[in-house]
């Protein structure tokens, strides 16, 4: 091969220092993937538990969770679905930027004006999006639900309906194309 990048064997790393570095990097990567999944899929709850590298295997856990590790673990142990109240989202701080409490204490007039303009533009965009969504719903009524994949069928009727909505949205007006391109740019920054 000759390159510096090489695929490592999927077995225990013998060197202690190399193993520690690998643990740190892969743990953060795993948590990052989980956070992306939670952001892309509202209503998803996840918990990841990992034991430390030290010889005391039962000392403590590295954990990542949404909405919280305790909540998900309790639900698992009690064999019940964890309920996700809508207020909890605001409390966890996952709200949007305009729900920031700092705006109530803001003293700079220019920043306030900028925020008002941004919220106004966001409101207009969301209203346009709502109109398009309503139109696509009307269009969905006439479409035949097409089941392509076995997993899609396994996910249930709601997901199938969502696929239909996606198809409708794909055929939306060309004005959204510009927004999508802009959103892609924002998407990279957001995550």
């Amino acid at each position: 091969m000759g390159g510096t990048k090489r695929k490592i064997e999927m077995k225990r790393i013998e060197d202690k220092n190399v193993r520690a570095v690998a643990f740190t990097k892969r743990k953060s990567g795993l948590f990052h993937k989980a956070s992306e999944l939670c952001l892309l899929s509202p209503g998803t709850q996840i918990a990841i538990l990992a034991t430390p590298l030290s010889s005391h295997s039962h000392a403590s856990f590295y954990s990542f969770g949404h909405s919280s590790v305790d909540h998900v673990v309790s639900s698992l142990l009690h064999n019940q679905h964890p309920s996700l109240p809508t207020n909890q989202d605001n409390r966890s701080g996952l709200g949007f930027w305009w729900e920031d409490q700092a705006f109530d204490r803001l003293e700079n007039v220019d920043e306030l004006k900028e925020a008002v303009d941004a919220v106004s533009r966001m409101l207009n965009n969301v209203r346009l999006r709502l109109d398009d969504a309503v139109k696509s719903n009307q269009r969905d009524g006439s479409l035949v639900i097409h089941q392509e994949d076995e997993e899609v069928l396994q996910l249930g009727y709601k997901d199938t309906n969502q696929i239909t909505k996606l198809e409708g949205e794909t055929s939306a007006s060309a004005s959204l194309l510009k927004n999508v391109v802009d959103n892609l740019h924002i998407d990279d920054r957001y995550y």
Partner: peptide
């Protein structure tokens, strides 16, 4: 990735996932 982490570092990893 959880599997790889558990194998390479010889630790216990578990993932619990509740879908929408």
């Amino acid at each position: 990735k959880a599997e790889e982490l558990s194998i390479l570092c010889a630790i216990d990893v578990c993932v619990i996932y509740y879908g929408p």
